[in-house]
């Protein structure tokens, strides 16, 4: 993980480092085990195609979790992720990269915490934003 980021050092409008995860069939099987979602459209190609899909698709909840990981890896050991929200607007196919991005929309102090709100999203390698959302994190101050 990178160096600690501090509240004073970030600006509204700033993009945070992106995160890319190739969602191989092995990754989707690991997610099925980790989440308890064993719906076959995510790991059984014949089943997926039988429902009309072109191939197995990445679980929406895995994309939600990757957006959480995007924020976790940005806020560092002293930051905390407080909220991760997203909508599932498009499919991500097996064996494709899921690319997660974030952009700071607001900095504020609430209840004694340094709060940063972000627009977050996951997109396909073709640039389609399949999973738009918002995140809220707290960051430490340099002064602490």
């Amino acid at each position: 993980m990178s160096d600690q980021v501090y509240f004073e050092d970030v600006q509204e409008g700033q993009e945070i480092p992106s995160l890319t995860e190739k969602c191989t069939s092995q990754r989707l099987v690991m997610w099925a085990a980790g989440s308890g979602d064993f719906y076959q459209i995510h790991y059984d190609k014949d089943f997926a195609q039988g429902t009309g899909l072109p191939d197995r698709i990445t679980h929406g909840a895995l994309k939600h979790a990757l957006l959480g990981r995007l924020l976790h890896e940005w806020v560092g050991d002293q930051g905390r992720v407080k909220r991760v929200a997203c909508q599932y607007r498009g499919m991500d196919m097996v064996n494709e990269d899921v690319i997660c991005h974030g952009r700071i929309t607001k900095k504020s102090q609430q209840g004694g915490e340094n709060i940063v709100e972000l627009e977050i999203w996951a997109e396909t390698p073709q640039g389609q934003k399949t999973t738009p959302g918002t995140g809220v994190v707290s960051l430490p101050s340099r002064a602490q």
């Binding site: 909840a61 905390r80 929200a85 959302g133």
Partner: peptide, 13 residues
């Protein structure tokens, strides 16, 4: 049925 979205808020570790 479609999953429209997920929003999770964490108040403490």
């Amino acid at each position: 049925i479609l999953n429209g979205g997920t929003d999770i808020e964490y108040y403490e570790p």
